[in-house]
Nucleic acid binder design. Structure first.
Lengths: 168, 168
DNA sequence: ATAAAGTCGTTCGGGTACGAACAGTTTTAA
DNA sequence: TTAAAACTGTTCGTACCCGAACGACTTTAT
């Protein structure tokens, strides 16, 4: 990470390879920095907070969603976490094997699986989440307090824009 | 994605599980939306632009870095792309097998590997990148033009803040 | 000069990650 | 009512993804 090349230099190189083709460098800069930031924060939290509990990023997201909304259906976890059902099945097998969650088939609708935290899982989250949030606070420490709201709005707008495209 | 629960409801649930422990909900909202946005855009571009060329996200990032900076050392690609050396080795083996890049050991320093695009790789990028950038433009389509610069700055600040923590 | 320390890319093992195909369940339509 | 359509979670195959250990190479220190 931490690209050693300047933005200007990158733009020149891109333009040199595409002749006079029109490129939107403003949106390119936003997207490039979006992925860099997400990657940097994720790696940081994985290496510090999550490693202490031997949790992967996805495993933590699953635990978090279940912690907040239990009992919760599998499909909700996948949608809330932003990954596929297939991925979720594998991660939940790992978490169930470690005794952190339980899965039971719904009696109301035989297609659904309801997920809950075990006492062990709840204990872990109660200890883990404050540390995680402390990491989040640190990642935004150099921003002004009154920038945080508008910043979150910009990000939400991007998500909404892209999600609405999916349908088409 | 597209969480169906409101932010307020989530905050209430978190607080209910942690008692009077202080949680920074502003930074939590920023981070949550950061990961959502990055994930949504990535999935969108993978499913549309990249799928047409049978490329994974990481494979595209590798090709892009090499395209701009060739000949380039492996370590630079990994750093610029934000993934590990181990990941890079695997992805480059795939790309070399498909005849899109070449790897040659440096004669100046026997530890380094220099990576270049093949003619086929360059042709693909010249066709692919304008479509990719069009996708980026679309993802920012609902933002005001004069918001893009400050938005990129906010993201860059987060990256810088987190990266500076790594060292300690 | 040469041993020690550092750097680089690869390999290895285990855990993600996804689309496609599938079986079981529920809903819809005629 | 009952066949068709829709939905849910799992399995399968393939590719990614990382930390740790490793071998090859270069730089540093004495």
């Amino acid at each position: 990470m931490a690209g050693q090349h300047t933005l200007d230099e990158t733009e020149r190189q891109v333009q040199a390879r595409l002749g006079d083709l029109k490129i939107d460098f403003d949106s390119m800069a936003v997207m490039s920095n979006l992925f860099r930031a997400a990657n940097a924060v994720r790696n940081y939290l994985e290496r510090t907070v999550l490693a202490q509990h031997d949790l992967s990023w996805t495993a933590f997201v699953v635990l978090w969603v279940v912690w907040i909304w239990e009992p919760v259906e599998s499909r909700v976890i996948a949608e809330e976490g932003g990954f596929s059902k297939a991925t979720l099945t594998g991660v939940m097998q790992t978490l169930e094997g470690r005794g952190l969650i339980t899965r039971t088939r719904s009696t109301k609708d035989g297609r659904l699986v309801l997920v809950k935290l075990t006492a062990k899982g709840r204990k872990m989250m109660k200890q883990l989440f404050p540390d995680f949030n402390q990491g989040e606070r640190l990642a935004t420490a150099d921003l002004k307090q009154n920038e945080l709201g508008p910043f979150a709005d910009l990000l939400r707008t991007v998500t909404t824009t892209v999600e609405s495209q999916k349908v088409n």
